[in-house]
């Protein structure tokens, strides 16, 4: 090999011996700083293999002498966060809903925590802004089926509506059309009357006929003036808010086939502190009573 050494005349540097169209590559040494950095990174790599988890094995991996694990790290981070929150969480667990709302510090914490819990657990049906959808109540407004007090909201979250929990809220309206309790004409008249309650009816004669049927069939739950009843979960029919739509066909559909929305019970799935925060959050959206 020593015989093949060729030194470039101009630069005095050895060439690699490779030639392209008369151009030869000089074999300059690597810059020192580069070389030392390279050695340092090699050393670093070896040290890293020893102290940190590095090499995959068949069913596990080398653990490293430091015993570092990203899962443990995460668990620790979560535990630390829990620890930091526990001051507030413990207080929230001990406090009544009214006490939470009265304490500005707890309220701030509960609104933030309730907001996150809502986004994860509730927004699928009620919407990210809690504005609901047809059949899924808008939680921002002041119209409630089972009541909008802190306790009523808390109860609904705990046990749900028509859920599998034994304390669940359960309201049932007869399917007047399907079960042939009322004729089509009667249903039409009642619908006109119900619409007239909030000032949007069109046929006054039909509404007058419907008033009689309403008093017989509906007022037991929806009350005589149609304002509904929290105890029975009977919606207020006299206001401007309609869960299933306020046009006549929607009202006729409700009377004919009845409606039965449902919400799962969250007790057992969410801890008590989270449910309290959720109740406070929903109550704060603007419609709380």
């Amino acid at each position: 090999m020593a015989d093949n050494k060729e030194v470039d005349q101009i630069s005095g540097v050895e060439t690699t011996g490779h030639e392209w169209d008369g151009i030869k590559e000089l074999n300059n040494p690597l810059p020192r700083w580069w070389l030392w950095t390279f050695y340092a990174t090699c050393l670093w790599a070896f040290a890293y293999w020893i102290v940190m988890p590095a090499w995959p094995l068949i069913s596990s991996h080398t653990a490293g002498v430091l015993g570092y694990s990203s899962r443990e790290q995460l668990a620790k981070t979560v535990a630390t966060a829990r620890e930091a929150q526990s001051v507030y969480l413990n207080r929230i667990e001990d406090a009544s809903l009214e006490e939470i709302v009265a304490d500005s510090e707890l309220l701030e914490f509960a609104l933030a925590g309730g907001g996150s819990a809502f986004a994860v657990n509730c927004s699928q049906c009620h919407g990210r802004g809690a504005a609901g959808y047809v059949g899924y109540p808008n939680l921002n407004d002041d119209d409630w089926i089972w009541g909008g007090s802190l306790e009523a909201i808390s109860h609904a979250i705990h046990f749900g509506i028509r859920s599998d929990h034994e304390e669940t809220r359960f309201n049932e309206m007869p399917a007047y059309g399907r079960d042939e309790l009322l004729t089509r004409e009667e249903i039409n008249d009642v619908a006109e009357y119900v619409l007239a309650l909030s000032g949007s009816g069109e046929d006054a004669a039909a509404a007058a006929r419907g008033e009689v049927t309403f008093a017989e069939q509906c007022s037991a739950c929806h009350m005589e003036n149609g304002e509904g009843n929290y105890e029975l979960g009977a919606p207020n029919l006299s206001d401007a808010i309609w869960l299933y739509g306020g046009d006549k066909s929607a009202v006729v559909e409700s009377i004919t086939n009845s409606r039965a929305g449902m919400m799962p019970a969250w007790t057992g799935r969410l801890d008590e502190a989270t449910i309290k925060q959720l109740a406070v959050y929903v109550h704060s959206l603007g419609g709380g009573e």
């Binding site: 119209d143 206001d239 603007g286």
Partner: peptide, 18 residues
Amino acid sequence: RDRNPLFVALSDGSIRNG
């Protein structure tokens, strides 16, 4: 301004913005 919901219709027909 609240963007979700843009506004809330209340039971007496009035409009609320957050």
